[in-house]
Computed example of a mutant assay.
Amino acid sequence: MPTMHAVVKGKVQGVWFRAWTSDLAAEMKLSGWVRNMSDGNVELEASGSRDELDEFLERLHDGPPLARVTEVETQYRESDAHQGAFRVVR
């Protein structure tokens, strides 16, 4: 299954970015996780079809209303592991 790892940069902490990402992923039926990083960025991993991941990535560039995304670094890989429901991790 295609899996995307991303680091979202900009004003993305303290603006509901993780909850928004989790809600969007659940709506799109993606599995994976999202978490804050100590450097102020947000890291996530999502699994689904390549088309779904491309749409998810496009939406990540916008983020929730209070966020200001400046960059999204991404890497793709194939994964056999099932990640379960998308979740916020600490």
Rank of each mutant, 00 (worst) to 15 (best):
S47D: 02
K29A: 12
G84F: 15
G48I: 11
S38F: 12
E43G: 05
L30S: 02
L24Q: 05
V88C: 00
R87G: 07
W33P: 03
E71H: 13
V8T: 09
R87L: 09
D51S: 13
V42P: 11
E52W: 13
L53F: 06
E43I: 08
L24T: 07
V89K: 06
P2T: 12
E73K: 10
H5D: 10
S38A: 15
A67D: 04
S31G: 15
S79Q: 08
S38Y: 14
E43K: 10
R87Y: 11
V15A: 06
A81H: 11
L24A: 05
T74K: 07
Y76T: 04
T74C: 04
V89Q: 03
Q83I: 14
S31V: 06
F56K: 02
F17W: 04
K11R: 15
G48Q: 08
E43F: 08
K11S: 11
K9D: 00
P64W: 07
D23Q: 15
V69G: 01
R59H: 10
R50S: 12
T21S: 09
V69Q: 07
L57C: 03
D54N: 11
F86N: 00
R90Y: 15
D54S: 10
D51E: 14
E27W: 08
G32K: 02
Q83T: 15
S22V: 05
V7I: 09
E45T: 14
M1L: 04
L66N: 12
E73R: 11
E78F: 12
R18L: 00
A25V: 03
H5Y: 14
E52G: 10
V72K: 09
R68E: 06
E43R: 14
L60T: 03
V89M: 02
D54F: 01
P65E: 10
A19S: 01
G10E: 01
H82K: 13
G63M: 01
E45Q: 15
T74E: 07
A25G: 06
D51V: 13
A67M: 04
R87D: 09
M4T: 10
A19C: 00
D54G: 05
G48S: 07
T21W: 12
L53M: 03
K11T: 12
R50V: 13
K11C: 11
F17G: 04
P65K: 12
S22T: 07
G14P: 03
D39M: 07
L60N: 06
Q75C: 04
M28A: 08
V15C: 05
Q75R: 13
D51G: 06
M1Y: 02
P64R: 08
F86S: 00
V89N: 02
